[in-house]
Amino acid sequence: MENNLRRKGAVRVEPNTKRDARVHRGAEHHRLNVADRSRSYLRHHAEVARQSYFSLLAQPLTTFMTLAVLAIALALPGALYTGLKNIQQLGSGWDGDPRVALYLKQSVTEAEAETLSRELLLRDDVAATELITATQGMLEFKSMSGFGDVFNFLDTNPLPAVVMVMPRDLSVASVPLLQTRLQALPQVDDAVVDMAWVQRLAAFVVLAERAVWVLAALFVMAVLLVVGNTIRLSIESRREEIVIAKLVGATDAYVRRPFLYDGVWFGVAGGVFAWFLIQLSLLLLNGPVGQLVSLYDSQFELAGLGLIETILLLLISILLGLCGAWLAVGRHLRQIQPQ
């Protein structure tokens, strides 16, 4: 039996002719050619990616905890960014068309107001006008504010008629000019450009944007550290294997590869996890925001992460996983040398 095995073994060592065309084997050593090398390179990538994936699944609790930290660290800036985007969108709804509100004098009758509104429409510097009569104003106030009962205590409607004027030229310089000209009209009590809150909002958005970036930078560092630390532990636990692989001729790239794939998988899963957290938090906010928005009579709708933003989130997450792994691997693999 043993003899038989031995013979079989000896036969196996014989170079197989099909491969021999590609593997040039000398009497004592052999070299692999370029095509073989690149094929084995790709095969190793695929193999390592698969092994890394399953080794992460093999330790579900550890992997889950790391992923949860990653996902939260990614979701926080992601959610803030989404919120900011929504606020910007809210601001931009008005931002584009500043209007001049003309509060007419109490003495101006409804018919005169109507005439004024039409006359203004003929001016070159006015794009559109909209008349809100005193009665309309009162009805709107009653229905929207919830203080409608106040009017029951008043003999007359205290609200003036208002003509909303949309300037043709929306530049920052010309709107105040139009405001002064309209202010001079005899029927007009006061001309107000309702821009202040838009400007305040814009300033707030700039501030919030800065804050999101600062926070994002901090969380990016957190992600790098979390991935780096996890990979460091993984390297420590495979120290022996690394030493032996180096002794039998593994390149640094070969040794590095499994850990980089660990980082990539953390990135992929962490990104997906973070996406769900962001969408879930938006879902939870959707109800209250809808209520708030309906009070303002607005068409505003809470927007989640779009396709591009989702892809971006995943890419950033994968990149961070890879970078975190790279940092850990670069630092610790150098220290592991055969002694």
């Binding site: 692999l32 073989d36 090398r37 084995s40 390179y41 692989a245 001729g249 593994a250």
Partner: peptide, 9 residues
Amino acid sequence: LPLRICGFD
């Protein structure tokens, strides 16, 4: 292991 590292089929 050494064969894997050398890139054998």
